[in-house]
């Protein structure tokens, strides 16, 4: 099975405090730790496991800048066979539809049976997979937490409310967005990264892909972020201050009063 996995380089929210810059037009990017979007690691792991079982190859692709190459390399260290970087000044400022338009062109350059995305990325949009599927006219299933490969089709489980699972048959080629917990993504050590350090990763721009530059980028975006801001959330929590002993004493008083201690 030929599998394409879309991956994105994002600020790692478990490693960073996200601060808004003074102009309010971006977050503070200096000193940010970046990593592969959490959901995408699960997608790549799943792709590798499927190929281990039924044969084929895994290609990872990202739309980004030169620095995004590092996430492709990381996923190749995990076991993806090929990487493709989609990069062009014309792609900058794309909205979800723009990103999906670029990825669609990359899909059409290959011959993939299965395309995977993460369920969502740093903007919490959960949109690129579904858009890509609709553009390709492929069937789509989101939030997939189980895949069984069959002949020309897959049996997939979608995680829905309450942790219940919605089972579906889906014909290939198809697009699936992957939910965390579907597998346990393998650990990538420094040695693995070193092994793929000098592998050539092709870069494709708008003209290589045959993408109309006017259909992507900031100019084509119907959805635009204007600014970041700190919401006025009212009072918020009463923050307990003082020494640890004092904080614990106050907390215990609260817990007693609210029925938190038995």
């Amino acid at each position: 099975m030929e599998i394409l996995v879309c991956v994105k380089r994002v600020p790692d929210t478990s490693e960073n405090e996200i601060e808004i810059n003074s102009a309010g037009n971006d977050i503070e990017r200096d000193d940010l730790v970046y990593s592969v979007n959490e959901w995408d690691n699960y997608a790549v792991e799943e792709a590798i496991q499927i190929v281990d079982k039924v044969g084929g190859s895994v290609t990872v692709v990202t739309v980004g800048d030169d620095e995004s190459e590092e996430v492709l390399r990381r996923e190749m260290a995990m076991g993806a066979n090929n990487g493709i970087l989609l990069s062009d000044d014309a792609f900058e400022g794309s909205d979800g539809k723009g990103i999906a338009t670029i990825l669609k062109a990359a899909v059409e350059k290959g011959n993939y049976d299965l395309i995977m995305t993460g369920a969502q990325a740093d903007e919490g949009a959960a949109q690129v997979g579904g858009m890509l599927a609709a553009m390709l006219d492929y069937p789509y299933a989101s939030l997939v937490n189980l895949i069984e490969a069959g002949d020309g089709k897959l049996k997939v489980g979608r995680e829905i409310e309450g942790g219940n699972q919605e089972m579906n048959d889906i014909e290939m080629p198809c697009v699936l967005s992957i939910q965390t917990g579907i597998n346990e993504p393998r650990y990538v050590g420094i040695r693995g990264i070193r092994k793929v350090a000098s592998v050539e990763i092709p870069t494709m721009g708008a003209s290589d892909l045959g993408v109309d530059a006017a259909a992507v980028g900031a100019g084509a975006a119907k959805v635009k972020r204007v600014d970041y801001f700190v919401p006025d959330m009212g009072e918020g929590a009463e923050m307990l201050e003082g020494s640890t002993e004092e904080i614990i004493a106050k907390l215990i008083e609260y817990l007693k009063a609210k029925g938190g201690l038995k």
Partner: peptide, 12 residues
């Protein structure tokens, strides 16, 4: 989980 499944493709 339903809106995420439907919305993006519907918009396209």
């Amino acid at each position: 989980t339903f809106g995420m499944d439907l919305g993006p493709g519907l918009a396209i």
